[in-house]
Design a protein around this nucleic acid. Structure first.
Lengths: 380, 380
DNA sequence: CTGAAAGCGCTTACAG
DNA sequence: CTGAAAGCGCTTACAG
């Protein structure tokens, strides 16, 4: 979509569902004439600083100063204003204030899918930390579609967020994103690196070290033939995890057979379906470092279907430590990314970018190995 | 907190992290003097309708009409405006428009915790449906704390949402909520009923029917002594589910021993810990209808710890059909609430309340029984 | 079909 | 310590 966007629907503000007035409120369906006159005695009229000021005979400026906690106003005046604010149940219109002050009190959070527990935790952390700082979260989801992502970002930008935390949809490219998020947008990319987006901050997981830890764990259990299973090899996180696997193998002086590097979409179904690829002619692996937990769960299913007990006949590790990982059979050895903590961190980073004017940073968060039963016991 | 709320931080709008200018941007930490002068030639100055209008010699009104897709403007003029909008990379300021038109393009969504997969799915559905209608989701979470809920709602209301979808924290009461959400707010309560909140819409699950279905299922398998396990009996959803259980038992002419009604916090840990309460002196049940999936999972753990195989020695059903339910051992028989669909429905309901002016409705969504292995085979 | 003017609810120098 | 005035970016009758 283009930048100019004809405004979307956007409907009347909270005109509480009151029983329709005898005269019927001007239905705004066609653009009516009666609206103007009616508005004056609208019982739903919102109370403003002007109402407060008039009620007690001070200026709007004074009311505003009280609202913003200025020390300039006399304690008695302040008390009168505050009493009146309460009496009339005044509610601050932050949008108006933001417009005047050229500030923003929201941050946009755009992720693929809230139903992914990793992102749900992440979102919870973002929202939590933003809330503590007085910001509100504007949510957007892309469903892994770059097209939807463009639309969502464009729409969110119209709400003038102070920052954007974006976990790019698969297949995003920086050039496209730069159309929706103009050069002065305060952006923090999460999880997926994008070349050509160096003007934005980045927060990622230590993918390489994580996969290395998992691989070393398996090696320490006596495994020698260890596959890297699942993920799209062209994604940055998969590349980095594969590099960690390769590094650990190399350090241990173990060869890696090309047949042990198996791609699959990062979902349970396809991961299960490709299980057979592990068991080719020769040099069959005894363990697999999986791209992520979902893939690992799929693989475990696939193993079971072939009569192989994960954690007994074949060792499996995941990545992410989704809640399910602890309760599957067997429980999954995996790398904990602490997504809620990452969410909090993302919020802090994007707010700091705002203040600093410092050039945006690349931050890599550590992951920790959580050993459970799927990686099995020491090999005899 | 009171209604007046001194404004929170709220920081400068997206002042993109550019390398700090030689002169240094006015740091707004103290309230500086240089700000005003600087602003004029600020390279970050946002482009407005005025800029577009001046650039091609039309009035702001004309630009506005083009933006809103009015048919009143001449096709050539429109083309010139549109070209200029693109050229200057204009982005619509929906906040300003909302202020002027007294409309809103956001809906607040307040839930306990995004990390709960049920609510994550629900939120995804809400956001999806709101997005389709051109609204943006303002997120808030309460962590089941009524105090935080007040604070979150008060803060969100300052952003003038067109509606509020609220799943009340446990222990909420209508009187409190009415302080944060004034009488004219367009509110839809989800999941938890609240007495004294009849001026607001409600969307809930068919708890009674669901529990009845589960109980009837167990009865059809030959069970006669069926417990209702977990939940706080004073919550409306627990009461309704218990009623469904009671009704099914009554219809089948089966007595319910008071010892079969066991309360527990709706978490895995406490549910597991209370397992022993099922196995008292006499009339030990052979099955339990659990308050929800989490409780059921806890109970299954507790059973295993006592050497009882869920689905073999004892039948268990849950409620909600969280993603985990399908992959536990054994997979859990439960009631699917289709949370994403419910989220979409909630969005539609709250938007409809906005339009109608119809008095808010109470909507009960059906749930469907999903039979898996935890309820076991027919009793011999 | 286009423009000048007023106004949404707030804040902020600037005077007093 | 308080008030009058201008302005944030938009929209909307009202004239022409």
């Amino acid at each position: 979509m283009s930048q100019k966007r004809p405004p979307r629907p956007g409907s009347a503000r909270a005109p509480k569902a009151a029983a329709p007035k005898a005269k019927g409120t001007p239905s705004r369906t066609k653009g009516g004439a009666p609206a103007e006159a009616e508005r004056k005695r609208d019982p739903q009229r919102v109370v403003t600083v002007t109402d407060i000021a008039n009620a007690i005979g001070v200026s709007r400026a004074t009311v505003s100063l009280v609202l913003r906690g200025s020390p300039l106003v006399h304690v008695d005046t302040r008390a009168r204003v505050e009493a009146e604010l309460k009496r009339q149940r005044y509610v601050y219109n932050r949008g108006a204030a933001n417009l005047r002050r050229r500030t923003s009190s929201s941050v946009a959070l755009v992720i693929n899918d809230l139903a992914n527990p990793f992102f749900a935790e992440f979102a919870a952390g973002v929202d939590e930390a933003l809330g503590e700082k007085g910001y509100v979260t504007l949510l957007g989801s892309t469903g892994e579609s770059p097209e939807r992502q463009q639309a969502v970002l464009t729409s969110l930008m119209e709400h003038t967020p102070a920052g954007v935390i974006l976990s790019p949809a698969e297949g995003s490219n920086a050039a496209q994103l730069h159309k929706a998020l103009d050069a002065r947008a305060n952006v923090l990319l999460f999880n997926r690196e994008l070349s050509g987006a160096d003007d934005w901050g980045f927060l990622g997981l230590d993918n390489q070290n994580g996969a290395q830890l998992a691989t070393e764990h398996l090696i320490s259990l006596g495994h020698r033939r260890i596959a890297f299973y699942g993920g799209h090899a062209d994604s940055s996180s998969c590349r980095q995890r594969r590099a960690g696997h390769a590094l650990a193998m190399k350090k241990a002086g173990l060869p890696v057979d090309a047949a042990w590097l198996i791609e699959s979409a990062p979902n349970r179904l396809e991961a299960a379906a490709r299980t057979g690829e592990l068991f080719g002619e020769h040099a069959v692996p005894t363990a697999a470092v999986c791209y992520n937990d979902t893939v690992a769960l799929g693989l475990m299913l696939g193993l079971l279907a072939r009569g192989i007990q994960p954690g007994k006949g074949f060792a499996v590790t995941g990545f992410d430590d989704i809640p399910e990982a602890a309760v599957t059979t067997p429980p999954l050895t995996t790398l904990a990314a602490h997504p809620r903590e990452r969410g909090r961190q993302a919020a802090h980073l994007v707010l700091r970018q705002l203040e600093d004017g410092a050039s945006p940073q690349k931050t890599i968060a550590p992951v920790t190995l959580s050993v459970r039963e799927s990686s099995g016991a020491r090999l005899k």
